[in-house]
Structures are given as structure tokens and as C-alpha cells.
Design a binder for these strands. Structure first.
Length: 866
RNA sequence: GCCCAAGUGGCGGAAUGGUAGACGCAGGGGAUUCAAAAUCCCCCGCCUUCACGGGCGUGUGGGUUCGAGUCCCACCUUGGGCACCA
């Protein structure tokens, strides 16, 4: 329980007001029961209403909800409730992304079973989430670790295998040579295994892959149609897919061996080639590795370190001259072939030609190994040769080529590339090709707590898919998790099975699926969560697509790209209609919840972190409540357990109520940016809700007397309707709330009569209902609103009430504001200019002379240039 | 290393290329009260001025424009992602 919050607010509750006080706990329980009783959040296809599907990225069941969840689900709830009140059948489901490593880690660290740990956490989190009053259809809830869910996922896998979307090949993993186990990237710390501390190596395993690269072009082209996605996410995805056009050609070997195919996106720099580089995983490197101890040692050196692109890109550049020589296709010059650790086998052909003058990596490499650097072009105004910095102009910049083979002189990089590809194709020694950076999706994981891959290995038949009637292939419960490695691999009997093809004794695949598979189709499953096929087409047809998807920007690439792939795969396999190939119509990426960090130092000057609720504030700054030691305050960062800068939503809800928590996370920052949780901000939110409760209760008790300024109040009301509606529809929740503050101020100050005030207060309840649904129901009832506010149709602003008769125009002199005038809204340009020229400020600035220019923007501004 | 964002008062932030700082917090002053809390009213970017006013001001440096927080270029700092964290 958050003592700080309770103490801080004790005084609010101790008031002696005769009016009933704002009792959040009582109000929230009362209205949650009313909603349950009326079953208002059950998604149905009835009534001929348009549908609206709002989905927040489902949580990993860590066991505790955090403020990030509160923010994420509150945003979705605002949209869902708003859409309910605008006449939609709303689908707003919740589930659990329940497979993954933390459950296995917990089992290893504290004992127990991943299954029990996970389902226990789900129960806890559901219990913490329900008090938030979210408009969720809980009857559709599922966890990805339910056999009913992952069995359907296995069926999907088999269908994808049938259609050629799944295949096997070798791929590298992080290998811990001490624990003899595969490590996740997260488990590699500074190149070492997190438990053993051993230097990690890259090792090849045969693994299952989804053929996402087949759809690279389509996934890229379809980005254009994602009108309601953030531009930055679309750009990140486009860059990730990485379409490039380049030249593919071969270097003939001097020794007559098989030619080396290379791919380059800068064929125009072929004159500057100083060596040919191949990946340590290139077939030629592998062949040499087998017969040459020096090569084997070098390649082994290259395989040290993790598999991440970051590790490979930032590693020190290493090279080995193979002694092989190739012929430059144009000049006939001999070039050496080097093995280089920064060349990826996965991209292009796994071999390149290096042009050090115009590529920084190549240049660093050539300087290190003393290879020649040949300039192929210069800037138009600078002939100096490349030194330590490669000359890499934008492809749209014009440069001057030196003695170019395709006859180029001054040209842009783009034109030069096209001309070179043309030249090579005409000469018959090369071909223009389009390639993608996107690699196929490796889905095999050597872990227990995931969806088993429904495959059987038979000595006679080879790799055989399991029969659908045998699904789900369930995870065994009796496993030992106390040692590293995959417990399925060492289970005495689970692997044993009959071959689905010939019936002979066979062995199950022991790898499980990447948890990204689980989250790549859950949105489709929510449309028919109990169907005995992956989806029910009629339900999918009605509810898909997700109209509004909401989640963290950290999922901008992988999760969203994999989901887009899966929707297409499900369409091909008959589980989704054509209309649902692109599953998320609109995407919103919200920011994180942050908090200040409080730290003291131990005797060794190491930081000791403290929870916000243990801090006291004095005139001299922050100190520890218990002992009074001064505390250093570090600027806000993402809430994390290790830094203890966390505020538990459960504490906040019991101190202030859910409506305050919801109001605050929406009010203080634009939703796409981070929000800093502050105790004073939460207090302010709570005080405001108290004030709304008090004001509306007073209005409810007013007599029917007429007052002054009814029309002004109603104008304010219509403006509030207009702006709050716009704010909600455009995810401007903080702006909508600012308007609600202003409208509340206007309502409080207004001297209007009871009728106008009640009308305005009921509209206030409606406008606040998506954000503070419990308080809104209470006010609505108090003011005699009909039924539940969740069922009341959203108010519509009267355009006639939104226009002002006069406008205030600022007058600038040379772009600086010097005066303002108030004029009728429709006054003509010439009259406005005349009035402006007569103001003192303009006369003073002109000093009797004529202005150079006068700009009048009607209804906006006047600028006099002197 | 590569890709993508974000930087505005003491603080969170607002602002279709058109009055920078809406709204909220913190702070100051006042009303109410025996007193306090709660509540209500007023002030509140920085410098300068008794005041009227003037100058400066949206991370830094340039540019486009009658006019730039907003558009363009370069840089700095912080955050997200980099394919086995979810």
C-alpha cells in the first residue's frame, strides 16, 4: 500500500462538506458491477451495426501490471468506449503472450514449473487489471500456452508447410561451449554467456524457417497502403526489408576454380576494386577451412562473438588472404581474395568486391592490411584523393568519374549505377538484379516453454509432418529444468512416437517455436477464440481487420512485420479472407511511463536504489523517510525493477481510484511520447475529479431558476464537444483533457440557470466517460441521465454554436508582433489593412513613409514590412 | 557501426508556416477560517525599466520565407530497434 499517497491525501477525505464526497472505491465497484450485470462489453455481431475492433498488444504475464500497461490499456479503452457510444459493435479482447524464457528462468531460479508460474501470474495480473474498469470482453480471453491455442498454431504450421511457406536450412546460433547450450541474444553479455561466463561462439544448426523473403516485395509495396500507420514505423519497415538494385557478376579465378559470384549496389565503382572479399561462411572459405589449418584458425576466430548484427558490425575488422587470385572482368588485373569477418553470408551472394575509396568499412580494412585505394570519382569542386575518410556522396549528387569504363564523365550516382548495369548486361558479363535485406524467419528454438513443432523424424521416411488429428502435440509436464539445455531433448519418453507415414518407431522434433509466432496471429484468433480451426471464416470476415492497434514502438519492426506476413500466410492457407491480408488498419505507438530515480551510495560508492514511496521531501531536497539520509535524484527513465523507480498501479488505484490513474496517464503527455509519473501530477488529477464531482453534485441540487449567460455556457459546451471529439479521434488525449479542464472551469464560473448547467454537466459526463468511466456514470445518474452513460449516444456539436462574431488579429511589423485589433469576422481585406495602418504601433514604425509590403491573411494575421 | 525518432519556462506540455508558452504542476500574493486543511480569486519565460515600454527566447550553427517551434542542411544530446528479450 502506498503510504505516501494516503498520507498526502488524508486531508481531502477529512473535509466537513455536507455534500457527499467523491468516494472512488465505492463508485468504481458500484459501476463495475452494473456493467457486469448488463454484460455491456460482450462483443456481438448483432443489430446490423458497423463493427470496430480495437486491440492493444497483449501483455507478457510477468505477474504484476505496471504503469505502462495502465497507459496502453487505458488508451485502447478510451477508443473502445468512444466507439461504443457512436453506434458500433466493438470487439475489445484481452489475452496473454504466455510462452517465453522468463518462465523457464523462474523455474531454474526459484524452482516450480513454468506452467504453474505462468498461469499463477495470469490470475494475478487479471486480478490487478479488472479494477481499472476496462471495457474488455473477458469471455474471449486466452493464453498462448493454452493447448487449445497452440494446437491451432500447430495446424497453421502444417498448412504453411503444405503450401511451401516453411522449410529447413542451416543457420547460426549463439553457442555457449561450457554449458553446451544455445543462448538468446539477451543471454549474451559482452560476448560471454550469462551463466557460464564463457566466450560465446557462432555455431550452425539445422532449423525451420518461414519463407518471409518470398513476400519481401509485397510486404514492401503494401506499406504504401498503410495510411493510418505512423510514418516512422513505415520507414523503419521499408528500411528493414531493404530493397536494392545492383549488379551481380562473377570474378573468374586465375587458378581455373569455380568463379566467385558477387553482388554490388555500386557497380559504377568497379574501377576502384582492390580486392574480392568473401564471408567466413562462404563455400570457398569452408572448403579452405577443411584443408588449411591457418584458414581454419582464422575462421574460428571470426566465429567468436554473438550473432547480432551489432556485434558483427562493431567487431574489429579481420581479414585473411586466401592466396586465391581473380581477374578483374574489365581490366584483367589480378585481385586477391580475402576472407573478411564483416561480410554476411545471408546478404547478397556472401561475396563482394571492395572499393575502399567509396566505402568506409572497405577503407578501414584496406588501410589495416595495406591494400590499394583507388579513387573512381571526385566531387565536382575537389580533386583530393581519399585519405582516412571514404568519399561517399549521396546517390543524387553529381560527381566526376575518372576514366570510366562505361564512358561516364559527370553524373549522379543513380545515373552511373543504371548506366553501368546497362553496360554490363550489353557486354554479357553481368546482370542487374533486385535483392532484399530481409532474411527468412528462423522459428526453431531449443527450449521447453514454447509451442512444439509438429514434426516427426523417421529413419525410413525422413522429416514427416504430424497428422492433424494428433494435434495438439502437448508439452509434457514432467520435465527437469535445473540444467541448461532443452528438457524436451533429454525427456526419456516424450520424443518417442510412431511415424505418421509408415507407422514405425520414430522421434519427435524437440525444438519449439519462436514466441513471435504466437503473437503473429492472436489478433485473428480473438475473432473466434473457441473455434476448432485456427479461425472461423464468418467471424474473421466480420471482425477483421483490427481497426485500431495500439502498442509500444519497440515492436515497430519485428512483431508488426511478422504479423503482416502471417496474415498473408493465413490467407493463402484459407484461414483469413482476402480483405484481411493487411491485418491492422490503423496503428498507434505509445510512449513509455517514466519516473525519477532515487539513489544513495553504499560504503563502496556503489548505487543503492530506493522506491518512490520511501522518499520524503523537505526544503533541502529529497531524503530517505526511514533514516533521513539525503537522496540523489536522477532524471526520469523507463520504470524498471532494477532501478526501483516503479509505482505500482495497485497502490495507486487503492489510494486514488482507477479513474485518477486513467486520467493522469492520459493527461500529462502526448500519447506517443513518454509520460513521467509524478506524485504531484497524480494528486492534481485526483483533486480535479473531486472538483468535477463537487460541481456536478451542486448543479444536481440547483433549483430551476434561470440565470445569466446560458447561451455563452452552451457555446462553451459545443466547443468542448467539438474539441474533445477531435482529440479522441486523433489520439490527442492530452489535448482533449486540457479542453475538459477549460470546460470545467467555464461550467464552474458560469452564472447560467439550472437547465443550461445540467445540460452542460451531462455533456461533461459524456465527454469524460471514455477516460473516467466510473465517475461519469455516477455524475450521469446524479444529473438524471437516462440509463448508462456507456449506452448514451455521443453528443454532436452544433456548427452554428462554434463560430465567433469577432476575431482578434495580431499586427506584425517585420514579422514581430506589435499590436492587435479586434474586427468583425467577415471584414474585407482592404478594410482590415486600413484599420491596421491606423494603429499607433504601425504609424510609429512607418514614421510617415509608405510600407514596402503589407500581408493580410484573413482571420489570421497582418504583417507590415517597412 | 547501421536504421528511426525526440529536444519549447522551475517542471509536464500547447501551438493547419501566422499573437510561442493553451491546460496542468510547482511558486508568489489575497479571500475564507479562532487557526489550519480543503475551497475560491489574482500573478507567474528571461533580462531591463518606477512605469509605459524595450531587448532576448523553442538543443547548437547555417539557410528558405513578408513571417520558422513548425520546412531544408550540418552538428550535439537523449531514447527505440538491429532478426533467439517480449
Amino acid at each position: 500500500m502506498g503510504n505516501t499517497a494516503k498520507t498526502r491525501l488524508g486531508h481531502i477525505f477529512s473535509g466537513t462538506a455536507t455534500m457527499s464526497r467523491y468516494d472512488a472505491a465505492q463508485i468504481e465497484q458500484k459501476w463495475q458491477e452494473a456493467w457486469d450485470k448488463a454484460d455491456v462489453f460482450k462483443a456481438t455481431r448483432e443489430g446490423g451495426k458497423p463493427k470496430y475492433y480495437v486491440l492493444e498488444m497483449f501483455p507478457y504475464p510477468s505477474g504484476r501490471i505496471h504503469m505502462g500497461h495502465v497507459r496502453n490499456y487505458t488508451m485502447g479503452d478510451v477508443i473502445a468506449r468512444y466507439k461504443m457510444s457512436t453506434g458500433h459493435n466493438v470487439l475489445h479482447p484481452m489475452g496473454w503472450d504466455a510462452f517465453g524464457m522468463p518462465a523457464e528462468n523462474a523455474a531454474m531460479a526459484i524452482g516450480g514449473h513454468p506452467k504453474e508460474w505462468t498461469y499463477g501470474n495470469i490470475a494475478d495480473m487479471r486480478g490487478q487489471m479488472k479494477p481499472l474498469g476496462l471495457s474488455i470482453d473477458w469471455s474471449r480471453e486466452f493464453a498462448t500456452c493454452d493447448p487449445e491455442y497452440y494446437g491451432q498454431q500447430q495446424a497453421l504450421f502444417l498448412d504453411m508447410l503444405d503450401t511451401g511457406l516453411v522449410y529447413r536450412k542451416n543457420a547460426v546460433v549463439n553457442w555457449d561451449p561450457v554449458d553446451m547450450t544455445v543462448l538468446a541474444n539477451e543471454q549474451v553479455e559482452q560476448g560471454r554467456g550469462w551463466r557460464s561466463g564463457a566466450l560465446v561462439e557462432r555455431r550452425e544448426l539445422t532449423q525451420w524457417f518461414f519463407k518471409i523473403s518470398d513476400m519481401a516485395g509485397e510486404l514492401l509495396d503494401a506499406i504504401d497502403g498503410l495510411d493510418n500507420w505512423p510514418a516512422k514505423v513505415k520507414l523503419m519497415q521499408a528500411n528493414w526489408i531493404g530493397k536494392s538494385r545492383g549488379l551481380q557478376f562473377a570474378f573468374d579465378r586465375v587458378d581455373g576454380g569455380e568463379a566467385i559470384e558477387v553482388y554490388t549496389t555500386r557497380p559504377d565503382t568497379l574501377n576502384g576494386a582492390s580486392f574480392v572479399g568473401i564471408s567466413p561462411d562462404h563455400p570457398i572459405a569452408k572448403a579452405l577451412e577443411a584443408e588449411n589449418a591457418d584458414v581454419a584458425a582464422f575462421v574460428a576466430e571470426c566465429r567468436k562473438g554473438g550473432t547480432t548484427e551489432e556485434a558483427i558490425e562493431t567487431a574489429e575488422k579481420l581479414g585473411f588472404d586466401t592466396g586465391i587470385r581473380v581477374k578483374h572482368p574489365l581490366t584483367g588485373a589480378e585481385l586477391p581474395v580475402w576472407i573478411a569477418n564483416f561480410i554476411l553470408m545471408d546478404y547478397g551472394t556472401g561475396a563482394i568486391f571492395a572499393c575502399p575509396a567509396h566505402d568506409q568499412r572497405d577503407l578501414d580494412f584496406c588501410r589495416k592490411y595495406d591494400l590499394p585505394v583507388i579513387d573512381t570519382f571526385f566531387a565536382l569542386d575537389d580533386n583530393s584523393p581519399v585519405g582516412t575518410e571514404a568519399f561517399v556522396p549521396a546517390k543524387t549528387d553529381k560527381v566526376r568519374f575518372v576514366d570510366h569504363f562505361a564512358g561516364l564523365d559527370i553524373a549522379t550516382g543513380e545515373d552511373a549505377i543504371d548506366a553501368t548495369i546497362d553496360f554490363a548486361e550489353k557486354g554479357g558479363w553481368g546482370e542487374g538484379v533486385t535483392k532484399f535485406r530481409l532474411r527468412d524467419w528462423g522459428l526453431s528454438r531449443q527450449r521447453y516453454w514454447g509451442c512444439p513443432i509438429p514434426i516427426v523424424h523417421c529413419d525410413a521416411c525422413g522429416v514427416v509432418p504430424e497428422k492433424k488429428e494428433n494435434l495438439p502435440i502437448r508439452l509434457p509436464d514432467d520435465v527437469e529444468l535445473d540444467k541448461p539445455g532443452n528438457p524436451l531433448d533429454r525427456h526419456p519418453t516424450w520424443r518417442d512416437c510412431a511415424c505418421p507415414s509408415c507407422g514405425a518407431d520414430a522421434k519427435r522434433e524437440t525444438d519449439t517455436m519462436d514466441t513471435f509466432v504466437d503473437s503473429s496471429w492472436y489478433y485473428a484468433r480473438f475473432t473466434a477464440p473457441r473455434a476448432d480451426t485456427p479461425t472461423d471464416l464468418a467471424d474473421a470476415e466480420y471482425w477483421m481487420n483490427v481497426d485500431q492497434y495500439i502498442g509500444g514502438i519497440e515492436h515497430a519492426i519485428l512483431h508488426l512485420l511478422y504479423s503482416r506476413f502471417f496474415a498473408r500466410a493465413m490467407n493463402i492457407t484459407g484461414h483469413l479472407p482476402d480483405s484481411a491480408k493487411e491485418p491492422f488498419d490503423a496503428l498507434f505507438t505509445q510512449g513509455m511511463v517514466t519516473h525519477e530515480i532515487y539513489v544513495t551510495r553504499d560504503e563502496n560508492d556503489r548505487p543503492v536504489y530506493h522506491l518512490p514511496e520511501d522518499i520524503e521531501w523537505t526544503e533541502n531536497g529529497a531524503r530517505l523517510g526511514a533514516c533521513g539520509s539525503p537522496v540523489e535524484v536522477i532524471p526520469s527513465a523507463k520504470m524498471s525493477k532494477s532501478k526501483k523507480n516503479v509505482v505500482d498501479p495497485v497502490n495507486i488505484i487503492s489510494a486514488y481510484g482507477a479513474d485518477t490513474a486513467r486520467w493522469f496517464v492520459l493527461s500529462d503527455s502526448p500519447p506517443e511520447r513518454d509520460v513521467e509519473w509524478t506524485a504531484s501530477g497524480a494528486d492534481a488529477a485526483f483533486k480535479h475529479l473531486n472538483r468535477v464531482h463537487r460541481i456536478t453534485a451542486e448543479i444536481a441540487e440547483m433549483g430551476d431558476a434561470t440565470g445569466q449567460g446560458d447561451d455563452d455556457l452552451l457555446r462553451e459546451m459545443h466547443k468542448a464537444i467539438h474539441e474533445v471529439t477531435g482529440g479522441v479521434e486523433s489520439f490527442g488525449f492530452n489535448a482533449a483533457i486540457a479542453k475538459l479542464y477549460a470546460f470545467t472551469n467555464a461550467l464552474q464560473k458560469s452564472k447560467a440557470g439550472a437547465d443550461a448547467k445540467r445540460t452542460a454537466a451531462r455533456v461533461l459526463a459524456q465527454l469524460m466517460a471514455p477516460m473516467t468511466p466510473h465517475l461519469s456514470e455516477e455524475i450521469w445518474q446524479l444529473l438524471g441521465g437516462e440509463g448508462l452513460v456507456i449506452h448514451a449516444p455521443w453528443p454532436i456539436a452544433d456548427p452554428a454554436m462554434l463560430v465567433e462574431d469577432t476575431v482578434t488579429l495580431p499586427i506584425q511589423v517585420n514579422g514581430k508582433r506589435r499590436a492587435e485589433i479586434s474586427v468583425p469576422k467577415d471584414l474585407g481585406k482592404d478594410e482590415v489593412e486600413k484599420l491596421a495602418m491606423e494603429t499607433d504601433a504601425v504609424k510609429r514604425a512607418l514614421d510617415g513613409k509608405a510600407p514596402k509590403k503589407v500581408i493580410v491573411v484573413p482571420g489570421r494575421i497582418i504583417n507590415v514590412v517597412v
